[in-house]
Write a protein that binds this DNA or RNA. Structure first.
Lengths: 193, 193
DNA sequence: ACTTTTCATTGACTTATGTTAATTCTTTGA
DNA sequence: TCAAAGAATTAACATAAGTCAATGAAAAGT
């Protein structure tokens, strides 16, 4: 739980008591490795998750039937599932636990109530969204301006644990390349060293 | 102004009077084509803009001196400039008006006051952020999973006006390719038709 | 422990992009 | 109006990624 309290105190001015009260009214669930949180094409009652422990993969199957990994969420990251616009739509993505996970579960129903009881919580969420957006933008800009090889080295640098925690072909699709190409990149880099 | 009122009524339950009151306390500025709103490496007092009319280009100069366009913001789009985390940092991007613009200017100082006076405004902003994030994610996922040619056709479909309003080489860098490559793609596509 | 399946690597080949450079076309400003 | 600068196109060549196919390694299930 420390991780959550730490997060809250970084982003709010809530008292310790309020923080504890909030923590206690949150739903926190454990999921086994391989558990599917939401399947592409289904409608979700869950608004978001917050990763306390473990790793969740976000991916989708494209028109040609290929599986494309769009993100990995790990400790201290928020997983946006639906928003005001998309809550009635079927999900474009699947979310699956790559490891055993401990997640805060944010369901859409209790959201309003929580914000009403703790207005500062909405401020926190807004700031989180701003930061998420910024990170996403950063990631995008780097992706645009990089070769696959540079993208790979960038991930090595920024998320060094990732490479140990997930299989190669998923990393490849996360980088937007084929597993074969990732294999060759690694080979090429070993030689240059 | 209609565009702003429309936006507010889509995202809030504010009364018309409140909406008008908010509109009137907003700062709205005109900028000439070519005007630089913020230069890469400078610190900004502005938190964000909201485009009522015109087009703003976001870009940066990378390590090798190459100019990379990361986005174009047009009517009804919000331009996030800084957030809680980045407000003391120098900007990684430059923002320049590609056309004459009419923009709502959101400065960091008045933000808190506004949220305090109109709590629903923060709700609106939070929802906007959620939607922005979703769009950004969608754009990213499409980018990863596409060839340059597919990226081009996708932009043609999704932002048909864009191609008429900006020069080719900026579009090319927005697509993450060279101007030469974009030229060849267009040529190839003409033949196939 | 062994079989089966899935995953990672390697090779051969095709193709699209990056790079460099030259040429044509457009815009801008004197 | 014309000259100069900036953009877009085209060509030639090198390189790296995609595809298809085969092999080798690891993981999973019996």
């Amino acid at each position: 739980m420390n991780i959550l309290l730490k997060y809250m105190s970084d982003f709010t001015l809530l008292s310790e008591e309020e923080q504890r009260a909030i923590s206690e009214s949150l739903r926190i669930d454990e999921y086994k490795k391989g558990k599917c949180l939401l399947r592409q094409g289904e409608v979700s009652a869950i608004k978001c998750y917050f990763v306390l422990k473990g790793c969740v993969r976000q991916f989708f199957i494209d028109e040609s039937g290929k599986e494309v990994t769009s993100n990995f969420f790990m400790e201290e990251q928020a997983i946006p599932i639906i928003n005001e616009q998309t809550q009635r739509d079927v999900s474009k993505y699947s979310f699956v636990c790559v490891e055993d996970c401990l997640l805060v579960v944010g369901d859409a129903d209790s959201e309003k109530t929580m914000y009403h009881n703790y207005p500062q919580l909405e401020t926190m969420v807004r700031k989180m969204m701003e930061i998420n957006l910024d990170e996403m933008q950063e990631q995008y800009r780097e992706f645009i301006n990089s070769t696959p090889e540079e993208r790979y080295t960038s991930v090595l640098r920024k998320r060094p644990h990732l490479i140990d925690r997930i299989p190669q072909h998923q990393l490849a699709s996360y980088l937007g390349i084929t597993p074969e190409s990732l294999s060759r990149i690694k080979k090429r880099m070993k030689k240059t060293n």
